[in-house]
Design a protein around this nucleic acid. Structure first.
Length: 268
DNA sequence: CAACAGGAGGCCT
DNA sequence: AGGCCTCCTGTTG
């Protein structure tokens, strides 16, 4: 969760047009028109499972010495790749298009709720109700703050990232995410695969054995409810659905039963 | 008191 | 019919 937020500030500061420039249309990257769609960051020395911050620090130190442009570009490539993956995951989990311009008012509401729960922002209530994707994208940061004095600026920053990354993803995400309904076990696995985003509410105890623990039952239930459009979802009902998996051999209680700890039977 | 187990009925695709 | 959602009773730590 920290990562993406750090990334938000990093991107803001690193972008050529800083601060509140009145950007009318979602501005694609002004440079490198051809090679930017490469999401896979193979040229970057980063192990798949390793965390980002140490690398960033390393790069930034180099930045301050010399080769500012080159290092900065590497960092941006790295960061953009991570952000793209995060957005892609969120799209799948929320079942909304990656491009905010395509959002319905329901999608907007979902995104707001999701973002404020993911980053534990103060709840904005209906501040953005009845707004479609195009409308919320047209709002300035000031208007965001006006509608939500407490978290409007953060929401605006996140929407900015979605806007700049969205159109690259929407074709791919559209084909992969807006499909059949996701299963609960798939949803849980997706959360578990994004520990830096969801590790505070669900995490592996032993990934090899598929054993995981729900750290914040109410939070996980809320996210599941958002995904399924079930505002009344709670852990009591979510756990009942998990229990349905017992006889199907998808999830079980581990040998030593612990509260809020479950185990996938066919780990992947 | 919250998590846990599981029956039963309804709803939707 | 399968996969939940909802509501329920009862048990357990």
């Amino acid at each position: 969760m920290l990562l993406t937020e750090d990334v938000a500030w990093l991107l803001k500061g690193a972008e050529p047009h800083t601060a509140s420039a009145p950007v009318p249309a979602p501005s694609p990257a002004p440079e490198e028109p051809e090679q930017c769609p490469v999401i896979d960051s193979q040229d970057v020395p980063l192990a798949p499972g390793s965390s980002l911050p140490p690398v960033l620090q390393e790069q930034e130190e180099e930045c301050s010495q010399e080769q500012e442009e080159c290092s900065l570009e590497q960092v941006q490539t790295l960061v953009v790749g991570e952000v793209l993956k995060d957005i892609e995951t969120a799209c799948k989990l929320l079942n909304i298009p990656a491009d905010p311009l395509e959002w319905s008012s329901g999608n907007v509401q979902k995104w707001v709720l999701w973002t404020e729960h993911l980053y534990r922002l103060p709840q904005v209530g209906g501040a953005f109700q009845e707004l479609g994707g195009r409308e919320i994208c047209a709002l300035t940061e000031a208007e965001f703050r006006q509608r939500s004095p407490q978290s409007g600026d953060v929401l605006h920053a996140h929407l900015d990232i979605w806007r700049s990354e969205g159109e690259e993803l929407w074709a791919e995400a559209d084909s992969s995410c807006s499909g059949q309904p996701i299963h609960l076990w798939q949803f849980l696995r997706e959360l578990l695969l994004k520990p830096h985003s969801y590790g505070h509410c669900i995490r592996w105890l032993n990934q090899e054995k598929g054993i995981f623990k729900i750290e914040d039952s109410a939070h996980v239930a809320r996210l599941w409810g958002l995904r399924k459009n079930r505002p009344a979802m709670n852990y009591d009902k979510l756990s009942r659905s998990i229990r349905q998996y017992y006889k199907k051999g998808i999830i079980r209680k581990p040998a030593v039963s612990q509260r809020l700890v479950y185990q996938f039977l066919h780990p992947v």
